[in-house]
Design a protein around this nucleic acid. Sequence first.
RNA 1: GGGGAGGUGGCUGAGUGGCCGAAAGCGCCCGCCUGCUAAGCGGGUGACGGGGCUUAACCUCGUCCGAGGGUUCGAAUCCCUCCCUUCCCGCCA
Length: 427
Amino acid sequence: MLAIQFIRDHPDLVREGARLKGETAPVDEILELDRQLRSVLAEEESLRAELNLSSARFGELSRSGDQAVEELRLKLAELKSRIQTKQQERKDFEEQLQRLLLVVPNPPHELVPYGQSDDDNVVIRTWGALPEFDFQPKPHFELGERLGLFDFERAVKVAGSRFALLKGAGARLERALTWLMLDLATGEHGYEEVSPPYLVSRECMVGTANLPKFEEDAFHVLEGDRFLIPTAEVPVTNLYREEILDADRLPIRHVAWTPCWRSEAGAPGKDTRGYIRLHQFSKVELVKFVRPEDSLAELEALVRDAEAVLQTLGIHYRVRLMCSGDMGFAQWKKYDIDAFAPGLGRYLEVSSCSAFGDFQARRANIRFRSHGGKPEFVHTLNGSALALPRTFDCLLETYQTKAGGIRVPEALRGYLRGLEEIGPPTH
RNA sequence: GGGGAGGUGGCUGAGUGGCCGAAAGCGCCCGCCUGCUAAGCGGGUGACGGGGCUUAACCUCGUCCGAGGGUUCGAAUCCCUCCCUUCCCGCCA
């Protein structure tokens, strides 16, 4: 959410920011509502000031038994009804204004390149070389099914399409990946691990800007009006909602492994075959709360922390700076990390790292205070490190052997009791 | 699920109808004192919003004592509903 003061002072900037993202912002309506709100607010407040003064006088008069009391009582009753009318008007304006403010997108940072689609994103760097094979590399779903790592059919039987099931070495491998990611974050990169609830309140979803604009993307649990988390970003960012943090505590860096649920209303197709784009998947997520001036440097560090996972695994990847049109509603600046899947012959997005400025902090009211100063909004950031299924897929495809087995990267063997290779299949 | 207690500022905690945006303490800020540190002494210190003001400082008005309603001329204080915390009992992984 943007500050109303900011929109008053820079309406063109807000309009332009929305345009860059390919969206629109109801700036004129907001400014008009804001004017009306302030005018009715001023009237209400001066009536209240009058009521407050007169009430005090009423007390004095009635104690001294003055006859004027009855006259004053009538006057106050009339005042009060006028106040109630104004108050209702004010509340209506506030509600309308709030609704509109929540749908104004965060303008991109000035260094974000302009663009309208995926093609306009800018590759910042790549790591490792495209893997080479002396045979035709297979896609992960073929490898995994032959090795018995997946059971897609039974997953569908149990939960419906777009759910997956890992078994045997597959389940263990994903668990090993999860442990590696958590150990890197907590042991090497200085994140404190949290294990949050997987259901959150509506307020939390609004705080991270998953609502009100994207309600159809989330699974809604009617009992208690809660939502299955689409990412750990939601519960973890909201950890400090409505709080004023001591500046000495910043930066706060958290890592969380959670399942994530997305309703992903699109139809299945070529890009969704295999262990990808599921209603439920798991992810290791990094979340930071920082001082405004550290925000962008912390974003760079966050991306590096996520990259470290792929480097440790020896998987080729690229980092792209998202163009204005391809970054979400709430982001200020965003990088994607795409790992290469040789069997599919394309890159898969395994991480999305974003800085939000104070956009989320305003919505969730997360502030900090430095030694006796005024409270200020923190800046929030987050990114995956990494999404499990796609990292799993890239690993399978990168480390496949001609015989159809999977070599286990050095870094994972300790989590798999020394296992060096999965398979190859015997039939 | 049943019953009791409770939710007050950055924190702890007093306050049962006007003298309360709210005692006291902690923390923080400024000053004094002090070989240094600690202690001590004095003063200051809530949030949000509107208006005034060239900005800041400042002035002023309003709102806020879990949330929302109600009673009253007037509510932190009385009533209702909801949320949350905690204790006892029950049930259960």
